[in-house]
Design a protein around this nucleic acid. Structure first.
Lengths: 277, 277
DNA sequence: AAGAGAAAAACTCACCATGAGAACAACTGG
DNA sequence: CCAGTTGTTCTCATGGTGAGTTTTTCTCTT
């Protein structure tokens, strides 16, 4: 590394072996893409929402082989080129949104983030399948519709999948989706601590109590209401006041809550730690 | 979702469309893997180490097309099946370690974690290439060796790539590797806050001052030595005392520092925030 | 209309973690 | 022995936190 990162020597001319676009063009003309296409790429989506104070995940029962009849995350092959099924996916997030909209209509603003990629050689019996997993957080969505590859689709509370209090033993999902879902749960729990992600589960206007409900649902524990209130308002940029009040102060009476919207901050300073309280 | 997640009804028998292994076997016998292999999968590795108080990243200059002559992260195709080049990669981390050992010998214990996957349709001119990026943190490693696809390889300080103080304008790497490196830098900076990851940059026994050096190098700022010392020792499981002292107390004299080893904790409670101090 | 009950929001207080600086301890080289 | 350097401990003011109480504002009942 005596000549520096840019591949130029002291005289300012490209070093031997420097980048040459014309030569590259000739190379590409004779390249055979099929020589290096030994794997299929899919996207799988962990869509999370909160219903009745409990996190739910979107699952479908597989209508086709392999693993026909097992519950699975929504997913599908990434379209590398235009196919009979439709246009190519420009990028991986586009593919994730495409397979998700086959199951449920999506609101204008949702949170989509990449979880990780799973590629063990035997995770799919057909061939080597590399699966890029995405996590979607959304406010309460309508019941899903069934699709071409799905016999049945539903929002399933994650207590039925081995998470949260009163958890079941954990049902087995297709492929390695149990592990993918577990990674999503841990990611969601952890990101609530140091990001403003909780608002992604709520409609545009919400109360502090509803926000606390998100934390309690995802973390599976109760929080001190007064301290939570103080902490949220003390964290700059987390929420901002809309100046309006919620319609009713609860079923059995009570003061009407103030309505807030999500603030501009993505990261929380200081974070909301689940450790102690 | 009236019948529960496991696909059984009240009578305990599988519901219509339940999982059927025998039928699936027949399906797989007639499956053509090439029908769904429209993309190539590669791994790219962001290997970080600290030299002379500055983070360095391992780069190689490409000896082949495409992007011949440009600096790039170590990487290569995932081997889906045994090839002329060698045995198949059982999982993606195996592939990441394989491409890395082509450049440098690795110590027994390194930190390897997945960064993310990049799959924009035009990120490689040959064909659709999905790249799974990994981040490796290691103690100071020897200078790299050149490989089959690499004309030249080197540890490059990340000030030469647009990060840290006195940063250059940022040189352009091959493909989208500038973005991948940027994501790695942000990931490393962030994970130092709430995990015990900093010890991955250090040898098995280290002093508190060396540990602080890791934080200062990665975050690009100085920290209050006394408060850092107190905080580290107050965080349970971060480090444990070896009972020994470092060889010398520095070049110009000074007290000999106590030696610590990494503790068992992976997560820090409470975290070390870079926000204020 | 008055009062009970309920939910949201504000307040109080003891305690702990933090930032900043000073002081002390242990070592090297002249 | 002394100056300089580095590692470690101590002090103190400040601010955030956990826990509980009080106040405000609403609904429902009588």
């Amino acid at each position: 590394m005596s000549e520096g990162i840019d591949g130029r020597r002291g005289d300012g001319r490209p070093a031997a072996g420097g980048y040459d676009a014309t030569d590259e063009h000739r190379f590409l003309a004779g390249y055979d893409p099929n020589a290096f296409a030994p794997a299929a790429v899919t996207v799988d989506v962990v869509a999370l929402t909160i219903r009745d104070g409990l996190p739910h995940v979107l699952l479908g029962r597989r209508a086709r082989h392999p693993q026909r009849g097992r519950w699975a995350l929504p997913g599908g092959f990434v379209r590398a080129r235009d196919s009979a099924a439709g246009p190519a996916d420009p990028d991986l997030p586009d593919a994730a949104l495409r397979v998700l909209t086959e199951k449920t209509p999506l609101p204008a603003e949702i949170h989509l983030e990449q979880l990780g990629t799973y590629g063990a050689i035997d995770r799919d019996p057909r061939m080597r399948v590399i699966s890029v997993a995405y996590m979607v957080l959304a406010p309460d969505l309508p019941d899903p519709r069934t699709g071409r590859d799905t016999a049945e689709a539903a929002w399933v509370p994650w207590t039925a999948l081995g998470y949260g209090e009163g958890a079941d033993t954990g049902h087995e999902l297709a492929f390695d989706h149990t592990r993918v879902l577990g990674d999503a749960v841990e990611r969601a729990r952890s990101k609530l601590e140091y990001t403003a992600l909780a608002t992604a589960f709520l409609p545009p206007a919400f109360t502090i109590t509803e926000l606390r409900g998100v934390y309690e649902a995802v973390w599976g524990r109760t929080l001190h209401a007064a301290n939570f209130h103080r902490k949220i308002l003390a964290t700059p940029g987390f929420v901002e006041d809309t100046g309006e009040l919620a319609d009713r102060g609860g079923s059995g009476g009570g003061r009407r809550a103030r309505l807030y919207r999500a603030g501009g901050a993505a990261l929380l300073h200081p974070p909301l730690l689940r450790g102690t309280q």
